[in-house]
């Protein structure tokens, strides 16, 4: 396993959540969520109860991965924005700091222009937060705080219990 595992701490999660809530209100969106490039849902805001966010997260990441593949074939580094227009709902997907995917689902109560503008603003804030997380995670590793980690004590029995 590479050292690039994503570790999310309470404090940064709070900040991310705050940014997403603000974006959700400012864009008048239906749902806003953040996914990492590997398809793991990180956080969400809005009317998530009717939506299968786990599946949506994995498909969005697949979408970004496929688009990234196309970009490389064409000699582009990456296409950073994807937009899908539906009859009622639209989806705006953007890549933040090469690592995180921001998804905004909206209908006629909002507009593409508004979403693009707000997404651009929030992207800067989110990039900063994720840089902080990476730095913090590195620091904790080098300071040896990992010893206090709950995973250090995982026993074979714990693992076997998962499959009962």
């Amino acid at each position: 396993m590479s050292g690039s595992d994503l570790v999310m701490y309470e404090e940064e999660f709070g900040k991310i959540d705050e940014e997403l809530q603000r974006l959700y209100i400012q864009t008048n969106a239906k749902v806003v969520f953040l996914v990492d490039k590997n398809g793991q849902l990180i956080a969400s805001a809005g009317e998530t109860h009717d939506i299968d966010t786990t599946s949506l997260a994995s498909l969005t990441a697949g979408n970004i991965a496929a688009t990234g593949g196309i970009a490389r074939l064409l000699g582009e580094k990456e296409f950073t924005i994807l937009f899908h227009e539906g009859e009622k709902d639209n989806i705006h997907i953007s890549l933040i700091g090469q690592r995180i995917i921001l998804v905004v689902i909206f209908d006629s109560r909002s507009s593409l222009g508004l979403v693009r503008l707000r997404v651009k603003k929030v992207s800067e804030a989110l990039t900063r937060i994720f840089n902080d997380i990476a730095a913090k995670s590195e620091r904790e590793k080098s300071e040896g705080k990992i010893d206090e980690s709950p995973f250090a004590e995982i026993s074979d029995e714990d693992i076997d219990n998962l499959f009962r």
């Binding site: 690039s4 994503l6 570790v7 999310m8 309470e10 999660f13 709070g14 793991q40 990180i42």
Partner: peptide, 15 residues
């Protein structure tokens, strides 16, 4: 790359 979330107390792994 696993995703460890201390806030929601979740570990996500990809197989």
């Amino acid at each position: 790359m696993s995703f460890i979330n201390y806030s929601s107390r979740e570990i996500n792994c990809k197989i």
